[in-house]
Design a protein around this nucleic acid. Sequence first.
DNA 1: TTTTTTGATTACCAAAAGGTAACTGATTAC
DNA 2: GTAATCAGTTACCTTTTGGTAATCAAAAAA
Lengths: 114, 114
Amino acid sequence: MKKKEHKECLSALVPVKDTLDVIGGKWKILILISVWEGNRHFREIERSIPKLSTKVLAKELKDMEVNKLVIRTVVNGFPVRTEYTPTEYSKTLQKVINELRNWGVNHRKEIFGK
Amino acid sequence: MKKKEHKECLSALVPVKDTLDVIGGKWKILILISVWEGNRHFREIERSIPKLSTKVLAKELKDMEVNKLVIRTVVNGFPVRTEYTPTEYSKTLQKVINELRNWGVNHRKEIFGK
DNA sequence: TTTTTTGATTACCAAAAGGTAACTGATTAC
DNA sequence: GTAATCAGTTACCTTTTGGTAATCAAAAAA
């Protein structure tokens, strides 16, 4: 009997891992939704998500900028304002997030209800 | 201007979080794929995934059993064998994982290539 | 008899993630 | 002058996560 090859399995997994790096974790999707909803400024986003700390928000927004989900622009001025706007590209995630949501809805039924 | 309501946003997010609890993290999808590929016994699965430790595999397999992704059966016997088999239900994740993979493939192009 | 293999569990330690609070610097309102 | 707001940064500490190695019981192989 041949030994099993696992290379294939692992390489197919890299892009899945990539995606989870971008939207996995506790806050990323929450932040994305907040920005999609119209929250633009740092404090505005922060206040819109209970329990989210300044530190984590700053880190997550940086990641999201690198991943082209939001654009950060500094509005020169008075009490220094920063604007985070969602990119068009970020909307390609909506389908993925929908799939995650649908499966989750069904999974609850599978584990509890039914 | 009305204050924004975030209740809706948050409740829509619960199932997404549920799904990420089930397949998020470093190992869950790897283990699932390993089992789908035909690895059945604890050591077999362990050896199929480099860097995965006994402790983490044991914990993850328990979670996966609770979530009905695998069935654990003890084959009474000689050096005590345990069998993990993927459920039919686990296959409902293939669509989700595919979406994650597709987005990841495209994302690499977006961030690097192009 | 000793070693090996099986599927785990446990104790112990290291690393990573995350929270809190203080502080920056500029400006406006009181 | 004092306080507050904006967008963070930093230091410090706690919690969570994860890895390593030892151990268990039971049987087969040496």
